[in-house]
């Protein structure tokens, strides 16, 4: 790894990043279509970056941990799960629930403090926690698959896991938020 040069990093990362750009624009157009929900549920727009950042951070640091564990031979490469992997997934779900609710409370407080209307802490909280759990379950599976595929193909996980998990996280979190807002947001 210490012999890798700028070109090696570009060769491994650039194709992924360009693919991510394509997926992110598609996810972004989806956000554009949430405009009705965003207008009907004031406070939700303020919540979107927080929930995206939360799930993205949890997923990428989980990927970074799994990568380090695998590199040092602490996660078996011939099985999909192990106690260490399960601990990571449980931590990811617990963090998701706690932080999503905290984000909803904060978004409500800041929105009200700014003198703007809010859909209410319970409704925002229910939407955020539901989206956090949905995206957490999906992203746990995505993290494990990403790690295994990267190792099978001999890719440097530091160059691969970040972009893949971050983008998949944005796509699935926006989908989860959209579904949660439609389901729990009222008509």
């Amino acid at each position: 790894m210490s012999e890798a040069g700028v070109r090696d990093i570009l060769r491994e990362s650039l194709p992924l990043l360009l693919g991510m750009a394509v997926l992110e624009v598609l996810a972004g157009s989806f956000l554009g279509r949430m405009e009705a929900s965003l207008e009907r549920l004031p406070g939700l727009l303020a919540l979107v970056p927080a929930v995206l950042a939360m799930r993205g951070n949890i997923s990428t640091s989980m990927g970074s941990r799994l990568g380090t564990l695998t590199r040092f031979g602490l996660v078996p490469r011939d099985r999909w799960t192990s106690p260490l992997v399960w601990h990571n997934i449980v931590a990811s779900l617990v963090l998701g629930v706690v932080l999503a609710f905290a984000a909803a409370v904060l978004a409500h407080v800041v929105t009200v403090a700014a003198g703007l209307p809010s859909a209410g802490v319970l409704r925002l909280g229910a939407i955020a926690v539901t989206a956090g759990v949905l995206s957490g379950v999906v992203m746990g599976a995505v993290a494990i698959v990403t790690m295994r595929v990267a190792f099978r193909r001999g890719l440097d996980l530091d160059n691969v896991a970040g972009p893949v998990l971050m983008t998949m996280s944005d796509v699935f979190t926006l989908l989860s938020l959209f579904a949660a807002a439609a389901w729990l947001g009222g008509a």
């Binding site: 990093i9 990043l17 991510m20 992110e24 624009v25 996810a27 972004g28 956000l31 995206l52 993205g56």
Partner: peptide, 16 residues
């Protein structure tokens, strides 16, 4: 529509 993309790619390159 570019907001998640700019944030996401910024985060991607940052995480690399």
């Amino acid at each position: 529509a570019l907001v998640p993309a700019v944030n996401g790619i910024g985060g991607n390159v940052g995480s690399i």
